[in-house]
């Protein structure tokens, strides 16, 4: 349960830090760190406008999307304390629960009958499916390395010993950071600040959402950041005692937010048609990790 609370806390600041980093990098003062959360709270208080074209799918989708992220949060452990949900092969459950949220967010975009939103939905479906193998190969490699199959046991058994294991950890961090960018539709894949609907992915999918529903979608985004941040933090926490691991957790989360802010400030968005290649290349990085694991286990003789 500890991880659940920590992720919740981290999510409050995460997006604020990204925004702040970006504004500082561009020489502006920028809004306060709590501004995104304040925006969402304001949205929660508002009424809503629904399109005449939409059906009940559009109404339930944000709730299901948000719940799927909450469920996924319960699976992620924190150092030696396991998540609320933990069983052998729970990372499969993690990925598939998030998939339900994605499924509904996609069909809710299609429910509006808008061609822009359909376009965003199409991209979202394609990019997230291409990122899937990378995550699964990564987790499979960890399972092979540690001999365990649940998030908690795998992370608890990860030891940074040899040079190869450092390489594995760095590559794994890279893969996970990139998955964060894809899952949250951030910079090299998608530009959340663009003003042209044609070039958006996530933002265009939620064009018609408003009020409470929009708030749910936004806060699910915050949670998703902290959720993947927690997985990355777990790579390094292992069996570190709590008095060090909790501050370390927040440092890693903060660092991740700053890195994302910097990436967004200095890298331009890829051309849409190049995105699939880039995302699929992640799978080959994951395969490198797999071969690294085989090296560590001494299978290459």
């Amino acid at each position: 349960m500890l991880s659940f609370v920590l992720i919740l806390i981290a999510s409050v600041f995460f997006t604020g830090i990204i925004v702040r980093t970006k504004s500082m990098a561009s020489g502006r003062k920028g809004p306060g760190i709590m501004q995104p959360v304040k925006d969402v709270v304001r949205l929660f208080k508002k009424g809503a406008v629904y399109s005449r074209t939409t059906s009940f799918i559009f109404q339930i989708a944000p709730t299901i999307y948000f719940s799927s992220v909450v469920m996924a949060m319960m699976v992620v452990p924190f150092g030696q304390s396991r998540g609320f949900i933990s069983f052998n092969g729970d990372f499969v459950f993690f990925a598939y629960v998030l998939a339900l949220g994605k499924f509904f967010s996609i069909i809710s975009a299609l429910d509006t009958g808008s061609s822009f939103e359909g376009m965003g939905a199409s991209r979202e479906a394609l990019y997230s499916l291409l990122a899937e193998p990378a995550f699964f190969i990564l987790m499979g490699s960890f399972a092979l390395l540690t001999g365990y199959t649940s998030f908690h046991e795998m992370f608890a058994a990860l030891h940074l010993g040899s040079y190869i294991s450092y390489a594995i950890a760095i590559l794994a961090t890279f893969v996970l950071v990139m998955i964060v960018m894809i899952e949250n539709s951030r910079m090299p894949i998608d530009d959340p600040k663009t003003h042209l609907e044609l070039t958006m992915i996530h933002e265009v999918m939620i064009l018609d959402n408003s009020g409470f529903d929009l708030g749910l979608i936004m806060s699910a985004g915050f949670l998703k950041f902290a959720l993947y941040g927690a997985i990355i933090a777990n790579l390094f926490l292992g069996m570190v005692p709590y008095q060090y691991s909790i501050p370390l957790f927040f440092i890693i989360q903060g660092l991740l937010a700053v890195v994302i802010g910097l990436i967004e400030s200095f890298i331009a968005r890829f051309r849409m048609s190049h995105n699939p290649q880039f995302i699929f290349a992640l799978t080959s990085v994951s395969l490198l990790i797999f071969f690294g694991v085989l090296l560590v286990l001494g299978k290459f003789v």
Partner: peptide, 24 residues
């Protein structure tokens, strides 16, 4: 990896067919 890719592809397939047939 293949099985996970199939999972992702079937999400694409079925969001497409459900969306096109029933929504909008």
């Amino acid at each position: 990896a293949g099985l996970s890719l199939m999972g992702g592809l079937s999400i694409l397939t079925f969001t497409k067919s459900f969306g096109t047939l029933f929504l909008g």
